[in-house]
Nucleic acid binder design. Sequence first.
DNA 1: TCTATTGATGTAACCGGTTACATCAAGTCA
DNA 2: TGACTTGATGTAACCGGTTACATCAATAGA
Lengths: 344, 344
Amino acid sequence: MSNATIRDVAREAAVSVASVSRVINGHTNVRPEMRERVEAVARKLGYAPHAGARQLSTARTHTIGVLLPDIHGEFFSELLRGMDREASDRGFQLLLSNIHAEPHHAVASLRNMRGRVDGLVVMAPHIGTELLFAHLPASLPVVLVNCAEHDRAHAELNIDNHGGATAMIDHLADLGHRDIVHLSGPAGNQEAAARRAGYVAAMARRGLPPRVIEGDFMEESGTAAALQLLLQTALPDALFAANDMMAIGAMIALRDAGIAVPEGIAIAGFDDIPLARMVSPGLTTMRVDIAGLGSRAVVRLADLIDGAEVTGVEPSLPELVPRRSTFSSSRDAVPQQPPLGHRP
Amino acid sequence: MSNATIRDVAREAAVSVASVSRVINGHTNVRPEMRERVEAVARKLGYAPHAGARQLSTARTHTIGVLLPDIHGEFFSELLRGMDREASDRGFQLLLSNIHAEPHHAVASLRNMRGRVDGLVVMAPHIGTELLFAHLPASLPVVLVNCAEHDRAHAELNIDNHGGATAMIDHLADLGHRDIVHLSGPAGNQEAAARRAGYVAAMARRGLPPRVIEGDFMEESGTAAALQLLLQTALPDALFAANDMMAIGAMIALRDAGIAVPEGIAIAGFDDIPLARMVSPGLTTMRVDIAGLGSRAVVRLADLIDGAEVTGVEPSLPELVPRRSTFSSSRDAVPQQPPLGHRP
DNA sequence: TCTATTGATGTAACCGGTTACATCAAGTCA
DNA sequence: TGACTTGATGTAACCGGTTACATCAATAGA
């Protein structure tokens, strides 16, 4: 493999550059004999077309830019996995860009993408939407993922945190629980707010009084919430934590205090992190299909690139994953899970 | 932000394209007055240089191609996080490519990179090394990560699985254990083989007889190994599993059988997955600094791109993370861990 | 046999930058 | 004042592809 150019191939094969180009791009109007000769020379010289030159003349990069706030943990890898699967199916590659907290840097990342990508998937919950919209390249298709609230018409994908929380309360209420406490995420966090609002709405619909303990998504605040509940005269029927880590923290603290889960209190979380099925009893939770979110974002972006005019938010409803932590008896049907993936 | 070209800016500012180019690229030989005028026009038109055109004329892309076998789980996200950190510090972006199992597709991915990147980081343990070397672009700097054994001189980074296993045996032996059993990974897996070889070597150095149970890296084979040990007349002093999942499977099975860990038997794993510090007792293990591996790969590649001539393997020694599962008494100092990161 | 049609191939302009070199004005020095 | 240096700016070639259009040979049709 080397640096041979299309003109080198043309000279060596004694044909014009146009013909070489036609052969390389699989055009039909070339004689088989010529095709063979050109292909032979190209192979001999190890010719590979220069992507930059191609981009310049075709104005297509076959690349999707991905702007993410931070590269961390499973959410990130799952999102990227889903995007990559769909992108490579469609002949796109992924160009990664870490969009830092400083707006200045974020804006630079955005401009940097011009001439490099055919479209963008942007996830920037920490960037103000005015700033974001002001600097989105008008000439590039963009799909937003998990963005903050705004009032622009724009192609967008979201996790339906509100609907997910509602579904969980439905589940708990169906099991007969009435006194359901919510352990929320930190104030100011958009996802935490949506989950909390879903909880409040679902409780109100049933005429049940909501009760919220403030948490911060960390395991320790689950522990603290459990201790707070233990100090009261009676435990609630169920505790719905805004994420799995807090649910597990609470579960461990309650078990240490001699309270059986789910007999003494039912516990539910949100996210379905891998740990959720490893703890004992398994934690009932809402699974967020992150890879699916990523691949749908790419599908949507590909449509935009092809000229479709799609706008509007497409919410992704999490799925209830019932496990033992909310079932009073192991006789209840609990779906079997496949064994956990591993590495190496 | 739009599609204005450098010629649009030049016309609007009534200067030549060369002057605009000089202003944009921060050359010093421009009068301040001209600089201001050009910058004002560029801002007004929302001009952003076209990366493809730049690549073509400068032969630099400021992009690093990353070829990975599969996008999955924490290993992947950590590696990418480390690479991205270092790359963006150096003004590089990351172009992702999933290098599929079929060699044909893998080769296509490689050629695809020409004119798109300044260098490659390739992790392809499943591609035969002859095939790989035959198709690596000669004109591109390449750093290999975690590759299979071969005899070429090439810039390369590896996890020192052999050394990590040796260090773990040192740890266990220092605690007075003599009868140490190894639960290995599956046959044919390169990392499993290296860890096993490290165990055997370390035992031999001490004159201790090695004893290996075959596992497959899955939790269930840990359970099976524990049951096998329980059938024997006496338990060994310690069990060293080739990864954390098997260690945890064994730990749970032994605990269920009424054997205290570490009092009845010490248990150690490898990898330091997040779960390792969540189980009770915490699992002693070898931490692999994956993010560090990624960032060092980029450092190395950047040196190559700058013209340095670095070859040779750079092994990355895992670090011992001592936890309760190998300490007979909780009085022993066990380093505190920071709280687990979380999401959302 | 002569013209119209068709299909393969070549020529050259173009994509949007960078940069070697030419040009030109202003300042320096004898 | 005239030759020389210096620094700013403009002109145009070039990077490596794609493709509209021109050209040309072969075949079809009159």
